[in-house]
Amino acid sequence: MTWYTLPGFKHIICLAAGLILPGSFGDLVVAGGAAQDLLTAQEKSGKQIYVHGTSSGGREILAYLGESSLEVPGRTMPCANCHGLDGQGNPEGGVVPSNLTWEALTKPYGVTHPGGRTHPPYTDRALARAITRGLDPAGNKLLNVMPHYQLSQEDLGDLVAYLKQLGKDRDPGLTENSITIGTTIPARADLAGIGQAIKAVTTAFFEEVNSRGGIYNRKIELKINETSYPPKTTSAIVKRFIQDKQIFAMTSAFTAGADKELAALMDNLHVPLIGPLTLYPQGGLPLNRHVFYILSGIDGQARALVNFACQRMPDKRAGVLIVYSDDQMTKGVLEAIKDQCQKNGCGPPETYSYPHADSDVPTFAARLKQTSKSVIFFLGTGREAIALMKEATELR
Rank of each mutant, 00 (worst) to 15 (best):
Y64D: 01
L222Y: 10
I224R: 07
S55G: 08
V375D: 03
L156H: 12
D358I: 00
P272K: 00
P147M: 05
A309W: 12
E67R: 09
K47Y: 11
L191V: 10
L174E: 04
L159E: 09
S178D: 07
G94D: 03
N268F: 11
A302K: 05
Y280P: 00
G58A: 03
G26T: 04
C346M: 04
M329N: 08
N140F: 07
H290R: 11
P349Q: 04
L156P: 12
L334R: 15
K107H: 07
S69Q: 13
S98F: 09
T175L: 04
E394F: 08
E226T: 13
L277R: 03
Y324F: 15
A200V: 04
E207R: 14
L163Q: 14
E226V: 05
L62C: 01
I179W: 01
C82T: 07
S353Y: 08
I298R: 09
A256S: 09
Q246H: 14
G94E: 05
N90D: 00
G116P: 02
G173K: 01
Q165D: 01
A366H: 13
W102C: 07
S252D: 11
R396A: 15
L85N: 12
V72F: 14
S56K: 15
L15C: 08
T234N: 11
T381L: 14
A138V: 05
V238I: 15
A236Y: 12
T2I: 10
L379S: 08
A138Q: 10
A256D: 13
L39M: 02
E207S: 10
R188E: 13
Y354C: 05
T381Y: 13
K223G: 06
A309G: 11
Y4I: 00
G46I: 00
D244I: 01
P186T: 03
H11W: 05
L321V: 02
A365Y: 10
R125P: 00
I131H: 09
V96A: 13
D326W: 04
D267M: 09
H270G: 03
P276Y: 06
T76H: 10
F9C: 01
P362G: 09
H83R: 05
I185Q: 04
Q165V: 03
N210I: 05
K232N: 13
M77G: 00
K164H: 15
N99H: 10
G89A: 04
T381P: 03
R289C: 01
G345L: 03
K219A: 12
G157V: 10
Y162C: 01
K44A: 13
K199E: 15
T251V: 15
L166R: 08
Q243G: 01
S353L: 06
G110T: 04
